[in-house]
Amino acid sequence: MQGSFRIDWGIIMRGPLLGFLLVISLADLPAHAEEPEIVWRHHASHRNVTITANPLSNASRTSFYRGRGFTAESIHSYARSCGFSIGMRNAGSGPITTRLADWRAVGADGREVSIRQPAAWDADWERLGVAQAARIAFRWAQFQSENAFEPGDWIMGMVTLQEAPATPLRLVARYHDSKGNHEIVLDRLACTPD
């Protein structure tokens, strides 16, 4: 590892909040410091497509977005929603596509909840008069409503649910390739309690 910067991976493994805050704190580290690998708490695969997730806390998102121009008041509703950081990789040989509108969270009681689209949040930010720079940061930090993955592509972003389901919940992530529609299920997820 270059320089004197060291990561306590145990912190990340023990708590997603601490892990996420650690990532935020890396914003001041210069580019020559070695970046840590992201430790994902939840993994699932279907064929050569892998999805990973970490729950996001209220505090971590408030800190992240306040650092990018949101006020505590404006980001409050987003930060307290049930949200996850998602990574998705296409290790196959052909392209795939995703639409967040096709994804669902299924609560312990079997009730389905859809994903709140990034455009719906942006409409809130416009109504609240959130600064343009903050809205840009928000927009690109989300898992996009539609994605196209070529072979080798890996895309990461945040997602929020329309409401918090009964936990543990399952996230059903659907994708499309030349053979048709498929789904990957991330099991035993939970919203953070704060």
Binding site: R89, F143, Q144, N147, E150, G152, D153, W154, I155, G157
Partner: peptide, 22 residues
């Protein structure tokens, strides 16, 4: 569509390659 995204442009100004993700 998301960050990071990278393009490689050839000597004639054409997009030769694209990469989504790190």
């Amino acid at each position: 569509q998301g960050l990071p995204t990278t393009f490689v442009i050839d000597r004639k100004g054409h997009v030769a390659y694209r990469a989504n993700g790190g």
